[in-house]
Structures are given as C-alpha cells and as structure tokens.
Simulated scan of single mutants.
Amino acid sequence: MKKLMLTTTLALSLMLLCCAPALAADPVKTLSGDITLAQAQKILAAALKKAEAIKVPMNIAIVDAGGNLKAFYRQEDAFIGSIDISIKKAVTARYFNMSTRTLGSVSQVGQPLYGIEASNDGLILFAGGVLLVDANNVIIGAIGVSGGSVDEDESVAMAGAAAIK
C-alpha cells in the first residue's frame, strides 16, 4: 500500500513539474465569444457620441456574453431610475439573444411569451436593449440604454452596437 501511494505521489509530482512551464507560458485569455474591455469602451464611446448628438442624457450599460455588467456610463442629468432599466435592457437582450423590442412584441397579451417579464428577477421588454455581435457574427454581449423615449434609447444602443460590426 505504501509503495502504491509513493508511486502515485511521484507520478503526480512529475506531471506537475512537466506541465507547470506550459501552464505558466500560456496566460489566461478571454473566452471566445466574450466582449473585451477595449470593445466595450469603443461601443460606449459610440453610444455616448449618439446620445450627445441627440441631446438626451442617457444611462448606457454593456454586459458580457454571460450577462454580467462590463461597462456603464451615466451622463450628467440622466434619470437615476434609468440606471437599473439600462442594465436590465442589456441583460434581457443577452438572455434571450434578441433585441428588447423584438422580445416585447412576442410577450404581449395573447402572444406566446406573455408574462416572461416576470422571470429572471424582472426583464425589460421595450426598445433600447440590443445584442452586440462581432465581425465573425458571434454574440459577445449586449447594450442597454435608457433615458429618452424608447426610440431614442434604441437609436443610441444601435449606434453603440454598430461600432464593432
């Protein structure tokens, strides 16, 4: 029994010694299909530019592929109540891989997804949440915008999303 334990310990030690340099040489990389901070900043800058152009103070949230907040910006005088809405718009778009406008249209009374907004700790089902898709057509996250009319919110979100196409 001692011989088996010693042999196993020796084998594991050798594996660690052999593999450690290879593991150390290859640092952790961003998962395929996830947004980088540089991409999020580029998207945020494009969205802010659009918000400034239409002169509507906005809250802009960007989530990663897992629906986790990656970047956020609240312009001066943007509604405080819109902070949560912008984040939930982004999360909603990512959770269901469609814009919040599209999801909203299929969740009305009599439609197949009626009541879905009560799931996932609350969803937002009006325009302003848009998927972020990279040049390889891979979903890498979503953007949610709130502060103006739903059409203004969506136009700012679309401007941000277009920055990485």
Rank of each mutant, 00 (worst) to 15 (best):
A157I: 02
F79Y: 11
K29M: 15
A118S: 13
L103W: 00
A51M: 04
L69R: 07
D134T: 09
R74Q: 08
I164H: 02
A22V: 14
L23T: 09
L113K: 12
I87A: 11
L12D: 02
L123Q: 07
F79D: 11
G147K: 07
S32E: 01
D151T: 05
S99G: 06
L131P: 00
I62E: 08
A118R: 13
D84G: 10
A11C: 09
P112D: 12
G81C: 02
S119F: 01
P112L: 11
S13I: 08
T8K: 08
K29G: 15
I164Q: 01
K88G: 13
A61P: 08
L16E: 13
P21Y: 06
S105V: 05
Y114D: 09
A157N: 06
A142K: 03
I139C: 14
N120M: 10
A71L: 06
V138E: 15
S82I: 11
K49V: 02
V28D: 09
Y114V: 07
I143T: 07
Q75V: 09
E52P: 04
S155R: 08
N137A: 14
K55W: 06
A53Y: 00
A157Q: 04
V106E: 13
A90K: 01
A11L: 09
K165V: 11
G115Y: 02
I139H: 15
D77L: 10
P57C: 09
V109C: 11
A142I: 03
A71G: 07
I140A: 01
G122W: 00
V145M: 13
F79L: 06
M15R: 11
L113E: 14
K49I: 01
E117F: 01
M1D: 14
M158D: 11
S13N: 15
G147S: 07
V150A: 15
A71S: 14
R94I: 08
L69T: 01
Q111K: 07
V91S: 02
R94E: 11
T102L: 05
V150M: 13
T102N: 12
A65R: 15
F72C: 10
V56S: 13
N59G: 11
